[in-house]
């Protein structure tokens, strides 16, 4: 059993949710990049759900930012979400890097799916 899974949830239809749980760093960043590639390949909106993530480092931020850039280039909606209570190992790096408005990060998966759907198909 994988204690730090990264899985795709496609139940929202036109928005794929990449669900990231547990601790993630340079060891799991390649897996995250693969899952993000798969999600981007679906052609619709993408939500990265960090609700159950307990730790993410700059390798993870690098993967999230690369996917964001590719989503913007392809006109795909892209939103990162967290839950009501965010682990210090996730909140702190988002806060001090100022990436909350950039990625962007919003609270709640349903809200994120709605936001990703609304910006999908709006290439810059």
């Amino acid at each position: 059993m994988d204690a730090n899974p990264i899985v795709l949830d496609e139940t929202a239809g036109d928005v794929v949710v990449v669900v990231v749980e547990g601790e993630h760093d340079i060891y799991t960043a390649p897996t995250l990049r693969e899952r993000l590639d798969e999600a981007l390949g679906r052609g619709g909106g993408i939500v990265v759900d960090l609700t159950a993530a307990t730790f993410v480092d700059s390798s993870v931020l690098g993967a999230l930012l690369d996917a964001r850039r590719r989503a913007i280039e392809a006109g795909q909606g892209y939103v990162v979400c967290v839950g009501d209570a965010v682990e210090p190992g996730v909140q702190r790096i988002l806060d001090i890097t100022g990436l909350v408005p950039v990625l962007p990060v919003i609270q709640g998966r349903e809200e994120a799916i709605t936001a990703a759907r609304s910006t999908n198909g709006t290439s810059e």
């Binding site: 340079i26 730790f55 480092d57 700059s58 682990e87 702190r92």
Partner: peptide, 21 residues
């Protein structure tokens, strides 16, 4: 304190990652 531990884990992770990379 858990908040200091969180900072410690993050900083040490970044330092170790620098060595690995």
């Amino acid at each position: 304190d858990p908040t200091v531990l969180a900072d410690m884990k993050m900083a040490v992770t970044e330092a170790c990652t620098n060595v690995v990379v």
